[in-house]
């Protein structure tokens, strides 16, 4: 059979058609896979927006909790969440990034100690949140005497998200080309200068991606905060990290479990506030990330 014979051309055309069809099918499958998540999210969002938007107004944002669904507000929970998340970022980010720098840049990767550390950190990422709650209650509330305070909550959530931040930061640091490090050393920079001025700035976009995921998780956690004494009703705003607190997921959980159906709609309004806070924080992180990625180009 000659290559340019009619049969050969037909054969090639048929094969090509088959391959293109297969390609289209695969395209369809991965598109469907993407849509599963998107459709569920859209359904969820529509339901929440429909139930919640009616209850979302200035009064809702500036009122204390109440037994009347129409008077119930989210102020203490919102302020509590902002306090806790800010502190959690301040605690977890430096410790997490510090650990990743040590593991990637300083530790002897062939030592047993290094393996022990890495395996344990990876395992910690799989520990259920409630276990961190019990740990927080024993260590921060009771042993260190922080009490039922914002500080206890923030430390507990920090522990919860540390593994995610460490692993993401490690990956980001690993991805920095070693040619950059070598160039820095060649210019006479010390290890510390290289890490601080070359490696970290290059790794920041990756670190921030991990941080976004971690902090989003921390913001939605209710169980560990209930364990360390987070309250549903708090009739005042915190003055210091030692004050007792409420948080958005606690208040939402409380409202969804109330018998009165009106509270379900109040809960939906609470979820919108939580989503808005989450998106704001993520937007800030994305902004910083883009700024750094641009500089690297």
């Amino acid at each position: 059979m000659k290559l340019d014979s009619i049969e050969a051309r037909r054969y090639i055309a048929r094969k090509l058609k088959q391959r293109k069809a297969l390609d289209k099918i695969f395209h369809g499958i991965v598109f469907l896979a993407t849509m599963v998540g998107v459709v569920f999210l859209a359904v969820l969002l529509t339901k929440i927006l429909r139930d919640g938007l009616g209850n979302l107004n200035w009064n809702f944002l500036t009122s204390f909790p109440s037994r009347f669904p129409s008077k119930a507000g989210i102020l203490t929970a919102l302020v509590g969440s902002v306090w806790i998340i800010s502190l959690t970022i301040l605690i977890a980010l430096p410790i997490g990034v510090g650990t990743a720098i040590y593991l990637e840049e300083y530790a002897n990767k062939r030592s047993k100690f290094y393996n022990l550390l890495v395996v344990n950190i990876a395992n910690l990422a799989g520990v259920p949140a409630i276990v961190y709650g019990m740990l927080g209650l024993m260590v921060f509330v009771r042993l260190l005497q922080f009490g039922n305070s914002i500080l206890s909550g923030a430390f507990t959530l920090s522990l919860l998200i540390l593994p995610v931040i460490i692993v993401a930061s490690q990956e980001a640091i690993k991805a920095v080309p070693s040619s950059l490090r070598e160039a820095s050393f060649a210019l006479g920079a010390s290890k510390w200068q290289t890490v601080g001025r070359v490696v970290l700035p290059y790794a920041i976009p990756g670190i921030l991606t991990g941080a976004i995921l971690a902090i989003s998780r921390a913001m939605g956690e209710a169980a560990p905060l209930i364990m360390v004494g987070g309250a549903g009703y708090v009739g005042f705003l915190p003055d210091s990290p030692m004050d007792v607190f409420s948080a958005l997921p606690l208040q939402i959980y409380n409202w969804t479990s109330r018998p009165q159906t009106e509270f379900q709609n109040v809960a939906a309004a609470g979820i919108i506030v939580l989503l808005a806070l989450l998106l704001t924080l993520n937007a800030i992180a994305v902004f910083i990330r883009n700024k750094y990625s641009y500089r690297m180009d």
């Binding site: 209930i226 364990m227 708090v234 009739g235 005042f236």
Partner: peptide
């Protein structure tokens, strides 16, 4: 919670917190 709400309406300077663990 209902009691705390009414109590705080009368005594706003008492810091009441109610949890549900």
């Amino acid at each position: 919670e209902a009691v705390a709400e009414e109590f705080n309406a009368q005594y706003p300077d008492v810091k009441v917190s109610v949890g549900f663990s």
